[in-house]
């Protein structure tokens, strides 16, 4: 079986700052890969490289290869098409200053969906998948910015789902959310596993333990260790992993 995503000796630089050092890993279809590591270890840079959000950054340089379904995302794919297939949910809930409906419909409209009933279906499906539908179905026309933080983050997930990606990248999706909202977001991720491949960057190691199938540990731009979550958390190969997980770090 070929993996969904394959990263092959990836190096990333901003100006002359070497942010990712020779990272290689594979992500299987329908798995949740958790990525943990202290601040500045290159987690966000890694995600942004995966869907080429770094293309706009003049200081960004890289070498190495990334394959999506065995196709090189840099040489064999257009950035726009790639981003449609690999969606991203950002650290802070980033609702656009539009209504709830228009936030979710933003992506499908970009890609040419104009049919009103189709859009309604898509929006409903997206909101249901992130468990937000029941909370907002009566006020789809109100500004998204009036929702609570947790609701907004689930809205962002719905918005990403609405363009029907294959892979979803989360960059610390629950930072700043209360435990109940966090639980709801995590539940949504577990349910989405059926249809999506997910990569979850988190500052909260316990979150990775709760939802990820496998966990990777990044430190100072290096991939220290990757393996089944249970193993990484109970019998890590590397002492640094152990130190980080048990909180003996920095």
């Amino acid at each position: 079986m070929v993996s969904k995503l394959k990263v092959d000796s990836l190096n990333v630089f901003y100006d002359y700052c070497h942010v990712l050092k020779n990272v290689s890993l594979e992500v299987d279809a329908n798995e949740i890969l958790g990525i943990i590591g202290p601040a500045n270890s290159g987690k966000t840079s890694f995600l942004k490289t995966l869907n080429r959000m770094n293309d706009f950054d003049h200081t960004f340089k890289m070498d190495g290869n990334i394959f999506l379904d065995n196709k090189n995302i840099f040489t064999n794919m257009q950035a726009l098409a790639l981003r449609k297939r690999i969606g991203m949910v950002f650290a802070l809930p980033l609702s656009l200053p539009l209504s709830i409906f228009d936030n979710v419909a933003y992506g499908p409209r970009l890609h040419g969906q104009k049919n009103k009933t189709k859009l309604k279906e898509i929006v409903e499906r997206g909101l249901k998948a992130s468990y937000l539908w029941d909370e907002v179905k009566d006020r789809l026309d109100t500004p998204a910015l009036n929702l609570s933080g947790g609701q907004q983050q689930r809205l962002c997930i719905s918005r990403t789902l609405a363009v029907e990606p294959e892979v979803i990248l989360y960059d610390e999706p629950c930072s700043g959310l209360d435990p109940i909202s966090t639980a709801k977001v995590e539940e949504a991720m577990r349910q989405l596993r059926k249809n999506y491949t997910q990569i979850l960057v988190t500052n909260n190691t316990k979150q990775s333990a709760r939802v990820a199938d496998r966990t990777a540990f990044f430190l100072m731009g290096e991939l220290i260790e990757i393996g089944l979550t249970a193993k990484v958390f109970t019998q890590p190969d590397d002492k640094r992993t152990d130190d980080y997980i048990s909180g003996r770090f920095g």
């Binding site: 869907n51 959000m53 706009f56 726009l80 098409a81 981003r83 449609k84 969606g87 991203m88 950002f90 802070l92 980033l94 656009l96 200053p97 933003y106 992506g107 970009l110 890609h111 962002c156 918005r159 990403t160 363009v163």
Partner: peptide
């Protein structure tokens, strides 16, 4: 800047981002 990032992450082109958000 984050508005632009959201738009790009959904597969929008540069002009679509300018026009849309």
């Amino acid at each position: 800047k984050s508005f632009r990032e959201v738009s790009y992450s959904l597969g929008a082109s540069r002009w679509q981002t300018v026009w849309g958000v």
